[in-house]
Amino acid sequence: MSMGDTKSQQALGFLTILEHDQLGYVGGYLILNSAGRPLEFHCTAPVKPNRAQQILFGPTLESYLYGEQIGQTLLAKSSVDLLAVCTDVERALCVRDYVATPVALVLAEPAGSEGPSADAVTASGLAASWRVDAAHGAQPHLHEFALGRNRLAVPNHHDDDRQQIAERLTALISFDLAEPFERIREAIEEAHKGSRAA
């Protein structure tokens, strides 16, 4: 059996970040080929912000952790060219500010279900908790769109990503983009179970 040329494959990244009461934050990043089979998997050691970070980063802490520290680190590990990166964690969309690849949030509700209109601003609680430092810390405005049976969203300030994602993922339109996150969660659990045992 020979190894295939992974560089030439169309690959899609899936990023999720889990929050654990004791351990802190753990990031998992799965890269799949167009058949949905795994090419690479990367996961971080648990990250737990200290007290000083909590005080000094204030409301920007999560975007720093999700986007810069975990998201950016993981995405840099990819050894293949990616069509796009999907995440199921809204706060992880911040990673888009540090990478050139389009990043989309996979919304849980299936396309066609009742919900906000396509152009609705979906950031939860945004209007009620606007802050002067919102540019760094608050949830970004999202622009929703449908891709096959998936409902995706991109940050408003990266609205061009919509077009790019729609074009790049045309061949994967039947793909259930929410499914791989379940795999990542199991793999993170397995990896940490293994590290504990070691």
Binding site: S2, M3, F41, Q53, S79
Partner: peptide, 20 residues
Amino acid sequence: TLSLVAPKLKVSSFQFPQFD
């Protein structure tokens, strides 16, 4: 002086063989 530069994050990476 509090350093807010986080230490390098440890990442475990796995690459899987792709068979023809």
